Simulated scan of single mutants.
Amino acid sequence: MKRKINISLILLLCTIAVTVFLFLYWSKAESRTTLFAFNLGYTIFLELLFYGFIYITRFSSKKVLGSTYSVLGSILFFYLIFGIAVILIFNLFLLFLISVKWYYSVIVVGTLFGVIATGFTLKLNNNVVVENEKAENVFASQSTLVQKLKYLESKYKSELSKKGISESFESEHDSIISKLTNKIQFGNPKIIENNNSYSKINDSLSAIENNLDELKKVESDGKAIQTEITEIVNDTIFYINSLN
């Protein structure tokens, strides 16, 4: 199997090689001081940031939003402009006018602002990702409950029909179970998000299912079991209403 050529790495190495060559070519041996080494090192650092960001954006991740990449790209762009501008302005115009300490300080402060902006962006990204994951989990849990209720409702109607039982339930809903279905499907998602309430509702559905199994087995008309199911549903609806 052929290995893919990492174009970004090749470009980075070429850029660094050209940078080092130009710094050495356009400088004299006596001018290669600590400031020279700093300028060379900082320039390579900017190049590493640029190509590193390009390399990272190749990989999609559920943990990083597309908008976050855009914001980070903007922060990097302005930081690169800042870094290049500071290098050129100081070394071409201010080298003999102000202390080199100001040069180092400006770069350090600018870098600090860049790190802070990046940190806040990643923090906001993490918060949004966590909220999105919660919403997805709530939707999945809600869908699971609704599908289970629809199954139970179908089973409930079938057993009532077999037993010849008519449900005395005057409502816009098809049955008492459909009332609970709508309550969960169109209710407050935070109820599903709460583990305790979700567990409580799930236990109620299990109790309904157990009663339906009993209803299928009994030879009597099963009205007592129907009443039990109605009470479970009403209690569950009351519980959901109490959480709002």
Rank of each mutant, 00 (worst) to 15 (best):
F23R: 11
Y25D: 08
E136A: 15
W26N: 15
F21P: 01
D203C: 01
F93K: 15
K217H: 09
L88C: 11
Q147G: 15
Y198M: 02
I5A: 05
F139I: 11
L243Y: 02
T57P: 03
V128K: 15
T33H: 04
S74V: 10
I75M: 05
S204F: 03
L180T: 01
S8K: 08
L48D: 04
I176Y: 01
P189M: 05
F113C: 15
H173P: 00
N182C: 01
K101L: 10
R32D: 02
G187E: 01
K101I: 12
G164F: 06
S178I: 00
F59E: 13
L35C: 06
N127T: 11
I237K: 00
A140W: 02
G187K: 02
T121C: 15
F53N: 07
K157E: 07
V146P: 00
K217N: 10
F93H: 10
G110H: 07
T111L: 11
S158E: 10
A17I: 10
L40Y: 07
Q226N: 15
F238N: 15
N196G: 01
K4Q: 11
V129S: 12
F120E: 09
K28D: 11
S67L: 13
G73Q: 06
F36K: 08
Y25C: 05
I10V: 12
L76K: 05
V20E: 01
K217P: 00
K157D: 04
S70R: 14
T236S: 13
S220G: 07
A29C: 00
Y104E: 06
E30M: 03
Q142I: 09
K200I: 03
W102K: 09
L35D: 08
K28A: 13
S60W: 03
A117G: 08
K216R: 14
E214C: 06
S161H: 12
K162N: 12
S171N: 04
I116A: 12
E228I: 03
F93C: 11
T118I: 08
S199M: 06
S143I: 05
A85R: 04
V86W: 03
N195V: 09
N244C: 01
I165W: 03
L80E: 10
Y103Q: 09
L95S: 13
Q147I: 06
T121R: 13
Y42M: 14
I98G: 08
W26G: 08
N211K: 13
Q226D: 05
I165R: 07
S70D: 07
